[in-house]
Design a protein around this nucleic acid. Structure first.
Lengths: 217, 217
DNA sequence: TGTACATCAGTGAACGCGCGTTCACTGATGTAC
DNA sequence: TGTACATCAGTGAACGCGCGTTCACTGATGTAC
């Protein structure tokens, strides 16, 4: 039907194809569709359609559905999370600068990957999420434990609001960064807040934390 | 195969059935499965199986898939959200008591409905969420606008931390309540925080807000 | 009270559809001599 | 430089499967006389 589709001849395509890395392109379309419709709500055929590619090609590249998901975890999500972990290693020992570093890095990481918040809330956060075990155990848990210990230390040293729960602070930091960015599509329109940028969100979160944590100046 | 299934005779069942309201029971199973696996990830057949009921009965009661979702919105989700809106009407004019009321009511509403956080994060929060338009426009937006105006008022009157963004405060309140409860299944185990209750979460959020908002005492 | 019939709750079996996956194939490309 | 062949990128057509939905049906229940 479509002229582009008809132009294609059978057999191995010639090298003149203007498509240097289809695998990467398919992976990007996949991660964006997974973000928009959820993993369960996205079929391989739908990804193939948007990529103007045969469903059979999906299997040629990725083997099967499960392996495509694995590829997205390995090549898209793990690098994002590893970047946050890495940044925290260079944040120094000062509690305030650690909090600032986490918030800023989270916001940057998320803002440059629009598919990340929906994928995270759907597939990592939720009980039956398909990516949960593959990511939380390896990245979330170690970082979360380290930060909880850091907060508990600071609290017993009188450098942190005593009414806070150290266990919940790591969750709170994620909530204050991931959630506003994830939910932005909802309220942006309804609140008429079109001028809210990723930076606005970071500053708001830090303003709340600055006073709320009661860190000494 | 199963004895219970074989016992069933064809034709209209006698009134002695010990199942007074199957529709309600099916709806509860549906909302719980939607919460666990997402709407796209849940088939009518799967719900029917758990409810020990024919797939055909699903259509007898609900007409079709779309209408089942409508029923869940109308009978399960809207009452929950209406409860929060209602509570806020009786919260008085004091900003502090409004914030306390919102946080407490949110936590209560969510804690008594385990399916609510996953359903919310998946189907309301996310861009392609299936429940978004049906709920946000009617409940979220009006309440959000009212609270934003309230915050902006307080801020210009010097009764609220000037570095905060009034647009984002409503989002922040939801983030601090919904997110920790939604993500609890993840970190509860990994952080070894089995003793964190809904009340702990409410107190933590209020402790952070109490200082972070800089409301006058 | 008995009887005839309409209604009602629910089912079994079938339907078309899109899905994920397989496989024999095609013709361009790389390589050995 | 030719030529013969192995390899490689990719496809078209088919597959079995579970899905949502339909429909003719069954026998208990309610109702009119």
């Amino acid at each position: 039907m479509s002229p582009a589709a008809q132009a294609r001849k059978p057999g191995r395509p010639s090298k003149t194809a203007d498509d240097p890395d289809r695998r990467t392109r398919i992976l990007e379309i996949a991660v964006s569709q997974f973000g928009r419709s959820g993993i369960a709500g996205t079929s391989l055929s739908a990804i193939a359609r948007e990529a103007r590619v045969t469903p059979a090609l999906m299997h040629y590249y990725f083997g099967n559905r499960e392996s495509l998901i694995d590829a997205i975890v390995a090549e898209k999500m793990q690098p994002a999370m590893a970047g946050v972990v890495e940044a925290m290693k260079n944040a120094g020992n000062d509690l305030r600068s650690q909090v600032h570093c986490f918030v800023r890095t989270m916001i940057e990481t998320i803002a440059s990957r629009p598919w990340l918040p929906p994928l995270w809330t759907r597939e990592v956060l939720s009980e039956g999420g398909m990516l949960r075990e593959r990511l939380v155990g390896r990245f979330g848990a170690p970082l979360g434990q380290k930060m909880r210990d850091r907060f508990a230390d600071a609290q017993s040293g009188g450098q942190l609001n005593h009414d806070l729960d150290p266990n919940l602070l790591f969750v709170t930091l994620i909530a204050l960064t991931l959630f506003p960015l994830a939910s932005q599509p909802i309220w942006r329109h309804h609140l008429g807040a079109d001028d809210v940028t990723a930076d606005t969100i970071a500053n708001h979160a830090l303003a709340l934390l600055e006073r709320g944590l009661e860190m000494p100046t």
